[in-house]
Design a protein around this nucleic acid. Structure first.
Lengths: 165, 165
DNA sequence: TTGGAGTGTCAACAAAGCTGACGTATTATA
DNA sequence: TATAATACGTCAGCTTTGTTGACACTCCAA
């Protein structure tokens, strides 16, 4: 039915195989968020709070604008989340020393503690998945994920790893 | 710094590596949904419509209850989406012959056509990612994704492949 | 004929995204 | 120094997609 042409001969990709990849991505992402979601639900927080906490942990002292760019949401949307996190004492917003218009964001001790609970849950699942899939699968997993990102996302993803290391 | 113990010697999994996997999953999922989202936005539809269309395509004649289970949302939530799709002539709801309480859902020609546009976009990205990552990465990608699913999700995922083949 | 399953609908609400507009510091620039 | 631009916060209002709860209808089976 399909004859591999010379250019694509390395990979037979039927529509059905691609469709399975799409569905795997969908169901896996639900698993990926399930554990933190359960924790967040008990605290009246949502995924938006988790994302903010995650990236503040990742890049302590980040500015609001920077976080906005990473998350790709509007200022108003992020602000609503940030406001509750600051009010609840999980995030601290300090006026920047170099430019007093900017705010540097940090996790408080309570914020670190929640971040730990959330990322522990997520890491545990990720670790289990890696174990189950085997070491030779992990590199492939990461490669495909990186290739699936938009150019802009890939830039943000990479910049976190350079700046955050 | 780390000494592999006998039990985990196959895989060195630092928290940092796991964290990178988590972020890769987050950014990749955004890429994964970006193309259909753009198409849907021009039609005043959202991801919920896409998911319904996708799984009706996948299992034509599926009942509402079955779809509910796959998607994991409430009846009311799905019904709202289904109602607009039926009103817009993309989905057809036929009373089941065997049990007249049930409705069997099908895509109309227009529905098939939109499904094609959406899954074409998604498959194109998936295919490109597979190519870029290389054939040896694809199997690993799929293995990790499957291992990341919840038990229930994995069941649904598998049942689609048995029933849908 | 009666109970329960499958389905659909109404109402009300919440989370989290969006746009637009405006205010206020603060910094940069002409 | 006056003006423009930047960073941030907030108000108001809208959308999508999820949630509960209540209720009605059809139809199958006991």
């Amino acid at each position: 039915m399909r004859e591999p042409t010379s250019g694509e001969s390395l990979l037979y990709l039927t529509d059905e195989q691609l469709r399975q990849g799409i569905e795997a991505m969908y169901f896996a992402y639900r698993g990926f968020t399930a554990d933190p979601d359960r924790i967040l639900a008990t605290l009246a927080y949502g995924r938006a709070h988790h994302r903010a906490i995650h990236f503040i942990k990742r890049a302590p002292g980040t500015t609001v604008t920077n976080l906005l760019e990473i998350l790709g949401v509007t200022k108003q949307s992020l602000n609503r989340v940030l406001r509750t996190l600051i009010a609840d004492g999980l995030v601290e917003s300090r006026v920047s020393a170099s430019d007093r218009r900017e705010r540097n964001l940090f996790l408080t001790e309570a914020g670190e503690s929640l971040e730990n609970r959330l990322s522990d849950a997520q890491r545990t699942r990720m670790r289990a998945a890696y174990r189950e899939a085997g070491p030779e699968s992990v590199a492939g997993f990461r490669k495909v994920l990186e290739a699936m990102m938009d150019g802009e996302m890939k830039r943000r993803y990479s910049s976190l790893r350079e700046g955050g290391a």
